[in-house]
Write a protein that binds this DNA or RNA. Structure first.
Length: 172
DNA sequence: TAAGTGATCTCT
DNA sequence: GAGATCACTTAA
């Protein structure tokens, strides 16, 4: 078991998204520690990806995506939900992976609610000291178990909405 | 199927 | 400052 370091995230978001499957999202609050196996992710590639928040350039909210990899990007939407993303690619390239679901919890909004994730984690590094990080527990997910599909809720993105940048563990 | 909820962004 | 939009959830 090892904690994923920034070099893991300093790659193409599609690779990071795929390899994140089967890893464990670990949350510690005070003395409590909870680990959940990641089962669903989505990749957001860069400024040219019209489904990405970074499509309109750097703003106060998206600035974190332009920063170094291995940092959480947490934002609030629909008036009630926090979304959890981790920044990918090297500094200067706005890219991230959305963690949509873990074992037992399906839906990005539910996931953050269940694990008490909110904007205080935004822009924090994914290391144990921040209270939220990712561990590799040695599980290897076979390729045939990984299902890809179009991303969710991004119909406005035209062609980019159809790209199969969503990954999840399942079986056919 | 639709409404709730509020931060953020794009105009004035 | 106003208005539109939004990487969703829940109840019906």
């Amino acid at each position: 078991m090892k904690t994923l370091a920034s070099d893991f995230f300093e790659r193409d978001a599609r690779i990071v998204a795929k390899e994140l499957l089967g890893k464990y999202l670990v949350r510690s609050i005070g003395r409590k520690k909870v680990a959940a196996r990641i089962t669903e992710t989505e990749a957001y590639l860069g400024p040219y990806d019209l489904a990405s928040h970074a499509r309109h350039g750097k703003t106060a909210r998206t600035a974190v995506m332009f920063g170094p990899p291995g940092v959480w990007y947490v934002y609030f939407t629909y008036g009630m939900h926090y979304m959890l993303n981790i920044v990918a690619r090297r500094e200067g390239i706005p890219s991230a992976v959305l963690i949509r679901g873990v074992e037992g919890i399906v839906g990005p909004g539910r996931l953050t609610k269940k694990l008490a994730i909110d904007k205080t984690l935004n822009m924090k590094a994914a290391v144990p000291a921040s209270g939220l990080w990712i561990e590799d527990r040695g599980e290897i997910v076979p390729k045939r178990k990984i299902i890809t599909g179009p991303r969710v809720g991004v119909d406005y993105a035209g062609e980019w909405a159809k790209k199969p940048y969503r990954y999840r563990i399942g079986s056919f």
